[in-house]
Design a protein around this nucleic acid. Structure first.
Length: 434
DNA sequence: TGCTCCCGCCAACGC
DNA sequence: GCGTTGGCGGGAGCA
């Protein structure tokens, strides 16, 4: 399995903006090319360049030593070789080269500038069309940004683009929620959503009312390590297994599995998970804080960190995160609410490049899930059995740990489930997630 | 049609 | 009392 390291996560920023399309990257590259501190009109070299074959994508051109500059320059193949840079352009380049973070920030800003420009252009185009064919009311409709353009994920991207991933430790970056909300043109309520998630990962911390401090990714690995340990202590792997097992059981019921089998297996599982439940009940006081996005984010991340493979189906996560007392199936609204919040969290985590959306295929059908693509810590406590999907790097087979848990429990019902897991796994492998 | 998740109401919180 | 914070769910966009 290809595990991503933190440096993979943060260094090549392009990955963060993939969004499943090559287009964005391409546009971004184009934007970067256009951002080489050279005005397009001035790009023609004094001496015409003859070789057109090489694309003009050498970004740090002009960084040559003074010696190189002294000799008559050999005409390169670079068609876009610019005029000598202006002092400002040189300064920009030097700053950019000196600090990858600054460079990245500029890139990201440029990306969003590009996105915004694209939006404006598309909106402008739309308006033009409308002026010919549609009434004024429709024009207004067209001007309204689409749902995607207003998504929390994109907003989070814009938010992150404002700050360096790895700020200099001595440099304290303050975040004013009002300022950010105004700059990004959104209500403060939305910024709270983002900040709460970031705070749970300690990318930011609250300083005062309306004021946060930006830490960036500096302590992310440490935070994840802590969360993983906490997740293990809370027995989240077992809870995941239990939640998954319950779901399988409901399927089994439909298929006519014997009640005795289900009862005995549930007895075993409930016995096994009891300490966790008791712990949860004491910990979860149903207070406002316990349901906060911050806590939920921590728990959600813990689920990823303790599960193998690191793919968590949304509904399973919701079931685990809903307090045991509220887990009766009749309380569907609680479940729906939890799912909504998980989508919110997932959008921010996706923007951070920690998870990505996938789908898992089970007998019930395809269902949404998220796969951890952030840094992974291996420690001694990681004794979850290695699964087929883990070995092959497959995303599918959401909770093979279920099988192992049952085997450890000596559950009499384990055979059918195990069989199912394998079958669903193989099915999944033949029809991989999107 | 179901999934996804924006939006804003309104209650808890804290000064 | 008032501003801040954020839980919550209706309902609309989207595939």
């Amino acid at each position: 399995m290809n595990c991503l390291k933190l440096k993979d996560l943060v260094a090549p920023r392009m990955r963060k903006y993939e969004f499943g399309t090559e287009t964005v990257q391409t546009e971004n590259r184009a934007a970067q090319k256009e951002n080489l501190f050279v005005e397009p009109k001035k790009t023609l070299p004094k001496t015409p360049v003859k070789n057109d074959s090489t694309p003009s994508t050498v970004p740090w051109r002009g960084c040559g030593t003074p010696d190189q500059d002294l000799v008559t320059p050999v005409k390169t193949n670079d068609k876009s070789s610019p005029e000598p840079w202006s002092p400002t352009a040189n300064l920009k380049m030097l700053i950019s080269a000196a600090s990858p973070d600054i460079r990245d920030r500029e890139k990201r800003k440029e990306l969003f500038r590009q996105i915004e420009n694209d939006k404006l252009v598309s909106v402008a185009d739309a308006i033009q069309l409308d002026s010919i064919t549609e009434a004024a009311t429709d024009e207004l409709e067209q001007q309204r940004p689409s749902r995607k353009q207003k998504s929390l994920g994109l907003l989070c991207q814009k938010f992150l683009a404002r700050y360096p991933n790895h700020p200099v430790s001595s440099e304290k970056t303050e975040i004013s929620l009002d300022e950010v909300a105004t700059d990004l043109g959104v209500e403060r309520r939305r910024i709270y959503d983002i900040v709460n998630v970031l705070e749970s990962l300690q990318l930011v911390s609250r300083m005062a009312k309306n004021q946060y401090s930006w830490h960036g990714m500096l302590g992310l690995e440490q935070t994840l390590s802590t969360l993983k340990r906490r997740g293990e202590q809370h027995g989240y792997a077992r809870q995941l297994a239990l939640a998954h097992h319950k779901e399988l059981d409901s399927e089994e019921m439909e298929k006519g599995a014997s009640a005795q089998e289900r009862w005995s297996c549930n007895q075993e599982l409930n016995k096994e998970s009891q300490p966790v439940e008791v712990e949860n009940k004491s910990a979860l006081l149903n207070s406002r804080k316990d349901k906060s996005l911050r806590i939920m984010t921590e728990k959600f991340v813990m689920l990823f960190l303790v599960s193998e493979p690191k793919t968590v189906a949304l509904d399973i996560a919701a079931k685990v995160l809903i307090e045991e007392s509220q887990q009766d199936s009749a309380d569907n609204s609680k479940f729906k609410t939890k799912i909504r919040r998980l989508y919110d969290i997932a959008n921010v985590l996706t923007s951070l490049g920690l998870i990505k959306k996938v789908h898992v295929t089970e007998e019930k059908g395809r269902k949404p899930a998220f796969k951890w693509v952030g840094p992974v810590h291996q420690n001694q406590a990681d004794d979850h059995s290695v699964t087929l999907s883990e070995q092959t790097g497959s995303v599918e087979g959401v909770f093979p740990v279920t099988v192992n848990t049952k085997e450890r429990l000596g559950c009499p019902h384990s055979f059918s489930t195990q069989h199912r897991s394998h079958s669903s796994q193989s099915k999944a492998q033949s029809a991989p997630c999107s």
